[in-house]
Design a protein around this nucleic acid. Structure first.
Length: 453
RNA sequence: UCCAGAGUAGCUCAAUGGUAGAGCAGCCGGCUGUUAACCGGCGGGUUACAGGUUCGAGCCCUGUCUCUGGAGCCA
């Protein structure tokens, strides 16, 4: 019966009759015996295994090279040498699968770029093992956060006919051959269909029935974006709350990010220590700071004023009515506030149709949470719940209200103020781990021109 | 998609237009309760691809591809 190395290393006393199975990280030969560093991915640390030359199976030792898979039976004993608390004395050794000299992962450090080219093997490296264990734990934390607060998890559709306008280009889904635009009514769904760019519109319908809901699933954007923080396929978290205004929305976003930072530090400490050592030396202090301090809340108008008066010369000019450029966002969060910043109440012209118009008639209840190093990590708003205002907004954006009949129905029947946001899971992971390229927090990244694995 | 930079051994990188090198990894040997082990030796190249200039191109020019950084779009 196999025991995971994580459990073996957590042992309180010596144990016998253990079986561990994993991959050889390195082998060091001594006189009459060998040291094996064994890793099975259950934790960052390796298990040091002592294999005496007389151990059954020891004849295979020369083939137990870096990358080979093995099964080892033996006893857990205190290690006489410093460097590890426990080690295993093998009583039986079996080579399961050899790895010859062409195995590309070496004992020494590799560049992130090189590891990306071997995405099928990089989870066997310390860094990517840590990244993907952390990703798994945080996915759990996301559900825990919402479930504890009585949010209902909604599986919004991945294939959709509706365009959540403003969210970017969509991938077409079709069963047609040849010209797919000639007779879209003959297509599988009887209309044009796409991969979802957001579950928001559907989530709103469930919030207007179950009160507090969230989605957590894959999202697709066909934008030709070539940056370290964009992927064509990513996972998005979208809470939606009925009877909630923009203040409540901003409060939830802040609470959520703080909870995730706390979870990472407390529940992923071994892997986080690796990130702090090799990826981002300041990550621990940065997350502590985020947890302890309130986020700065700055209306868009005030943000413009800060940027205009800061004395900094920006490559792109600061002007009311324009979107904040990356350099502006970075200045606000990294230099002016030195903490996450929530910018809210944007001009209506630069935001999508579903955001609620403020009393001033010029701004909408949009909010973006900006974090140091990443930029925008949350984009949200209070939704327009007034039927006439929403219809006018649709026309304002040159959209046909008929295409949004079911969305408008929510405003016809028992309409309520409601609000929500979208949060990129990968960007959250980047923020929490310090990993600076989104391709390195996705198991198999999909980006323009790249879907090899 | 735009701007900038890069592409040389398995990996990380050197090399005034004049014989393509080092460290690490690998292999062989030695030593050792070792731990990014150590010491000695050996093999390893269509210099991303396609053209061009030149007596001669890794180096200069043109095009293509890929990667990196920045920008736009956004989460």
């Amino acid at each position: 019966m196999r025991t995971l190395i994580k459990q073996v290393l957590a042992s309180k006393e010596p144990r016998d009759g253990l079986v561990v199975q994993g991959w050889v990280r390195t082998r060091r030969d001594a006189k009459g015996f060998s040291f094996l560093e064994l890793n099975d991915g259950s934790c960052l640390a390796n298990l040091q295994v002592i294999v005496d030359a007389a151990t059954p199976g020891a004849a295979d030792l020369p083939r137990l090279t870096t990358g080979a898979s093995v099964s080892v039976g033996g006893a857990l004993v205190p290690s006489p040498a410093s460097g590890q608390k426990w080690e295993m004395r093998a009583s039986q050794l079996e080579l399961v699968g050899a790895a010859d000299a062409s195995y590309p992962l070496q004992k020494k450090g590799h560049s992130m770029e090189f590891l990306r080219t071997i995405a099928h093997l990089r989870p066997r490296s310390n860094l990517f093992g840590a990244v993907f264990r952390t990703r798994s734990r945080l996915a759990y934390a996301v559900h825990q956060f919402f479930q504890e607060r009585d949010f209902v998890y909604v599986h919004t559709p991945i294939i959709t006919a509706s365009d959540c306008e403003g969210a970017g280009e969509m991938f077409r889904v079709t069963a047609l051959k040849g010209n797919i635009d000639e007779q879209p009514q003959t297509d599988f769904f009887g209309r044009r269909a796409y991969l979802t760019v957001s579950g928001q519109l559907e989530a709103e319908t469930f919030a207007c029935a179950l009160s507090n809901v969230y989605t957590f699933g894959p999202t697709f954007r066909a934008e030709n974006s070539n940056t370290a923080r964009h992927a064509a396929e990513f996972w998005m978290i979208e809470p939606e709350m009925a009877f909630c205004d923009l203040d409540g929305d901003m409060a939830l976003g802040e609470e959520f990010i703080k909870a995730m930072a706390r979870f990472a530090l407390e529940q992923c400490s071994e892997d986080m220590a690796l990130f702090a050592k090799f990826v981002d030396r300041g990550i621990t202090e940065r997350l502590r700071f985020v947890i302890e301090r309130p986020f700065q809340r700055v209306p868009y108008t005030e943000a413009i004023a800060i940027l205009e008066q800061c004395g900094r010369r920006f490559e792109f000019p600061v002007a009311y009515g324009q979107n904040l450029q990356s350099e502006h966002e970075r200045f606000l969060t990294e230099e002016h506030c030195k903490s996450p910043v929530t910018v809210y109440n944007y001009p209506r012209e630069i935001k999508p149709f579903y955001m609620r118009l403020n009393e001033d008639g010029k701004t909408v209840t949009a909010m973006d949470v900006l974090v140091p190093g990443i930029g925008e990590v949350i984009g949200g708003s209070q939704r327009e719940e007034r039927l006439d205002a929403l219809e006018e907004n649709l026309r304002h954006h040159k959209l046909d209200p008929k295409d949004y009949w079911w969305y408008l129905d929510l405003r016809r029947y028992g309409s309520v103020p409601h609000a929500g946001f979208g949060l990129g899971f990968e960007r959250l992971l980047m923020f929490l781990t310090g990993v600076s390229n989104i391709r390195d927090v996705v198991p198999f990244a999909r980006t323009p021109g790249s879907a090899e694995f």
